[in-house]
């Protein structure tokens, strides 16, 4: 080939290309600041003697991981799943059922959750990823409902009423999760790992294919990418990550029930992503924190808090394009 060399291959500004690791933009600084503050939360809360807020933060971070995992397929991949609560349930039952048989080893719980979430995601993904749009939403919902009613029918494990977990997952020799601060740091570190994982995934060739398939599947296929398989792999990764969040949820609540997989919880995860900002790395975490904050605050004011919350959500969707991330980006600069 004889390409006409019109331009000397100099390097212009690279900032616009998103590979500038050294330079961190304003909004990323804000997010990293929040992450660092979250790391100092336990000593601060014990100083002001408000242990209840640690519970609140733990829940925020657990659902933050879940929302992050959903955003991987929903935001970056364009796969709007209405059944992600299934993985929270699977993860929680992977703590609860072994605990019922007095198996308290946390590594066993985690391994079970990873394997079973992966299998459920793989099997449901094989079928649901053949559909698009509203059909995909309905079929993911249907799979989760199947799982929900399966657990309702399992009388041995409490059926509808669920099961109390006597002891939390044990990580012998590492740390004691019965201590709330330890559990919090365990969740916190998992969150950091998950954020790093998703960040790398979407920058890597794999993530580029996922994003490309969201915007133009026909073209991606004509470039030689089997988009269905890439999506399936992404779906499984997302399910496993959410399953891990479920392990923490089970430990945190020390109680499991099919209600954890209720479709409204799948919807709440979508709310969190919309609040925080679809397509942003930190958005789902911020969204889950705000969601739980408002849930806690508004439900203290009135039992009709869902109504107020709904109005806020409508306002956000109408006027705040890009969620909180859009706002922070506008205020503190572009994150690319």
């Amino acid at each position: 080939m004889t390409g006409s060399q019109t331009n000397p291959p100099q390097e212009p500004d690279r900032d616009t290309q998103g590979k500038s690791w050294g330079k961190v933009s304003g909004s990323t600084t804000v997010y990293l600041g929040i992450i660092v503050l979250l790391g100092f939360a336990p000593p601060f809360l014990s100083l002001i003697n408000e242990p209840f807020y640690l519970d609140l933060l733990s829940r925020m971070l657990i659902l933050g991981i879940a929302a992050l995992s959903l955003n991987l397929i929903l935001g970056y991949g364009g796969m709007i799943s209405m059944g992600h609560a299934a993985y929270l349930g699977i993860g929680a039952y992977c703590v609860g059922i072994p605990a019922y048989y007095e198996i308290y080893n946390g590594f066993v719980h985690l391994a079970l959750a990873i394997v079973l979430s992966g299998i459920f995601a793989f099997l449901s993904g094989i079928i649901s990823l053949r559909t698009k749009g509203v059909y995909f939403i309905m079929i993911t919902l249907a799979f989760t409902q199947m799982l929900y009613f399966t657990f309702v029918s399992l009388e041995e494990y409490g059926g509808d009423d669920g099961l109390v977990i006597e002891l939390r997952s044990e990580f012998p020799g590492l740390f004691d999760t019965e201590n709330n601060t330890n559990l919090y740091y365990c969740i916190y570190l998992t969150l950091l790992g998950s954020l790093l994982l998703v960040h790398r995934l979407i920058q890597a060739p794999f993530g580029r294919v996922i994003i490309g398939s969201k915007h133009n599947e026909e073209r991606m296929r004509s470039l030689g990418y089997n988009t269905y398989r890439y999506r399936l792999v992404c779906y499984v990764i997302s399910g496993i990550l959410c399953g891990i969040a479920g392990v923490f949820l089970g430990n945190f609540t020390s109680f499991i029930s099919p209600e954890m997989m209720d479709w409204t919880h799948s919807g709440e995860l979508i709310f969190m992503i919309v609040i925080g900002g679809v397509n942003s790395l930190f958005g789902p975490l911020i969204g889950s924190m705000l969601f739980i904050f408002f849930e806690e605050w508004l439900s203290g004011i009135t039992v009709y808090w869902h109504f107020i919350f709904g109005l806020m959500l409508i306002a956000l969707v109408l006027f705040g394009k890009g969620g909180i991330n859009g706002l922070i980006t506008a205020l503190f600069g572009e994150r690319r």
């Binding site: 998103g18 995934l201 060739p205 794999f206 993530g207």
Partner: peptide
Amino acid sequence: AYQFWKPAS
């Protein structure tokens, strides 16, 4: 393109 870690760029 099942490369999950190294940035594509």
